[in-house]
Amino acid sequence: NQASVVANQLIPINTALTLVMMRSEVVTPVGIPAEDIPRLVSMQVSRAVPLGTTLMPDMVKGYA
Rank of each mutant, 00 (worst) to 15 (best):
T18E: 14
S42K: 10
G62M: 06
Y63Q: 03
I32K: 00
I13S: 13
V30Q: 11
S24G: 12
M59L: 06
S46I: 06
L19A: 15
D36P: 00
R23Q: 07
Q44R: 09
L19E: 07
E35M: 14
E35P: 09
L55K: 00
R47L: 13
S4Q: 01
V49F: 03
G62N: 15
T53F: 10
N14C: 03
L17P: 02
N14M: 09
I11L: 11
A7E: 00
V6Q: 04
G62W: 06
L10V: 08
S42R: 13
N1A: 15
N1M: 15
I11T: 02
N1L: 09
I37K: 06
A7N: 01
R39V: 09
V20W: 08
N14E: 10
E25Q: 12
Q44S: 09
L51T: 13
L51Q: 07
E25V: 09
L51Y: 11
N8A: 11
V6L: 09
L10C: 05
Q44C: 04
I37T: 08
V45N: 03
I13C: 04
L51G: 12
Q2W: 14
T28R: 07
A16H: 10
P12D: 09
E35L: 10
L40K: 01
T53Y: 15
G31Q: 02
M56D: 05
I37W: 03
V60K: 00
I11V: 08
L17S: 00
T54I: 08
M59V: 10
A48Q: 13
E35Q: 15
N1D: 10
M59D: 15
D58Q: 10
D58C: 05
V30W: 11
M59Q: 05
L40F: 02
D36C: 05
N8E: 08
M56L: 14
V26H: 12
N1Q: 14
I32S: 01
I11N: 01
G52M: 05
Y63R: 03
M56W: 05
V30S: 13
A64V: 15
V26P: 07
I13T: 12
V20I: 09
G62H: 11
V41H: 04
M43W: 14
V45G: 01
P33V: 10
R39G: 07
L19D: 11
Q2S: 12
E35N: 13
R47Y: 08
L17C: 02
A34S: 12
Q44V: 10
G31F: 02
L19T: 14
T18R: 12
I11M: 04
Y63L: 06
P29R: 05
V26R: 11
G52K: 04
A7I: 07
G52N: 12
R23A: 07
N14L: 06
M59S: 08
D36S: 13
M43G: 03
N8H: 15
N14P: 02
P38E: 13
I13F: 08
P12Y: 07
P29Q: 05
E25H: 08
V27N: 03
E35A: 15
D58H: 07
S4Y: 03
A7G: 03
S24I: 08
M59G: 03
A16E: 07
Q44Y: 12
I13V: 12
V41D: 03
S4K: 02
P38D: 11
S24H: 13
L40V: 05
M22P: 00
V26F: 05
Q2Y: 15
V30T: 15
P38R: 10
R23T: 08
R23G: 07
P33E: 06
P29D: 06
P50C: 04
S24T: 14
Y63T: 04
A3N: 10
P12K: 07
P50A: 10
Y63F: 15
V45K: 00
G52S: 08
R23M: 06
V6A: 03
N8Y: 04
A48T: 09
I13M: 14
E25F: 05
Y63I: 04
L55D: 01
T54R: 03
N8Q: 13
T28D: 12
V27S: 05
M21H: 08
L19V: 13
N8V: 08
S24A: 15
L17M: 12
P50R: 10
M56E: 08
V27H: 05
I11E: 00
T18M: 15
A48S: 14
I13A: 14
M22V: 08
Q9C: 05
M21L: 07
Q44D: 05
P50G: 08
R47S: 10
V45I: 07
T53M: 12
M56P: 01
P38C: 04
T15A: 09
S24K: 14
V60H: 00
V30M: 13
Q2I: 12
T54A: 05
V26G: 05
A3V: 06
G31W: 02
V6W: 02
G31A: 03
R47E: 10
M22Q: 00
N14W: 12
P57Y: 07
P38Y: 09
K61L: 12
T28H: 13
M56H: 10
V20R: 13
P57V: 05
V49K: 00
L19P: 13
A16M: 14
T53H: 13
A48P: 11
D36T: 07
I13H: 06
T28F: 10
R39Q: 10
D36G: 07
Q44G: 05
G31Y: 02
V27F: 03
I11Y: 01
L40W: 01
P33I: 08
I32M: 03
A16G: 09
G31S: 03
R23E: 05
I11S: 01
P12E: 14
P33L: 10
R47A: 08
I37S: 04
N1H: 09
N8I: 09
V27C: 04
L17G: 00
E25G: 10
M21K: 03
P12R: 09
M21Y: 05
V5K: 01
I11K: 00
I32D: 01
M56A: 06
V45S: 08
V41K: 05
I13W: 08
V30K: 15
V27R: 12
N8C: 04
I37L: 14
M43Q: 10
L40M: 06
A64Q: 15
G62C: 03
N14H: 12
V5P: 01
A16Y: 13
P33W: 13
I37G: 05
V6D: 00
Q9M: 14
V30G: 13
T53V: 13
Q2M: 15
M59P: 02
A48H: 11
L17A: 00
Q9H: 07
V20Q: 10
E25N: 07
P29E: 06
M59A: 09
R47Q: 14
A48W: 15
M59Y: 10
I11C: 03
A7L: 03
P57C: 04
I37M: 13
N8M: 07
L19Y: 11
R39C: 05
V26C: 05
P33G: 06
R47C: 04
G31K: 01
P57D: 07
G52F: 05
Q2P: 15
E25C: 04
L10D: 15
A34M: 08
L40E: 01
T28L: 10
V41W: 03
V60E: 01
V45T: 15
L19Q: 10
I37Q: 06
G62F: 09
S24C: 04
D58R: 07
V6I: 15
A48E: 13
A64F: 09
M21E: 02
V49Y: 02
V27W: 03
E35I: 09
P12W: 04
V5M: 02
V20P: 11
M59N: 06
A48C: 05
T53P: 01
E35T: 14
R47W: 06
N1P: 15
V45C: 04
Q2K: 13
R23W: 04
N8R: 08
M43N: 05
Q44T: 13
R47K: 09
Q2G: 09
S24P: 12
M59I: 08
R23L: 06
T54M: 03
S42T: 10
V49L: 11
M21G: 03
M59E: 03
Y63C: 03
T53W: 15
Y63W: 14
A64P: 11
V60L: 11
S42E: 12
P12A: 08
M22E: 00
T28C: 06
T28W: 07
S4C: 04
Q2R: 10
T53R: 13
Q44W: 07
V41Q: 06
A34R: 05
M59C: 04
G62L: 10
A64T: 15
S46A: 15
G52V: 01
V41P: 02
N14I: 03
I13P: 10
L51K: 13
D58V: 09
V27K: 06
T54C: 03
L51S: 12
A3L: 15
M59R: 02
I13Q: 14
N8P: 01
L10N: 12
N14T: 05
I37Y: 03
M21R: 03
E25W: 09
E35Y: 12
K61E: 12
L51D: 15
A16D: 10
M59T: 08
P29K: 06
M43P: 00
N1W: 12
A7T: 10
M22G: 00
L55V: 11
L55G: 00
L55A: 01
G52Y: 04
M43R: 11
A64G: 09
T15K: 06
T53G: 15
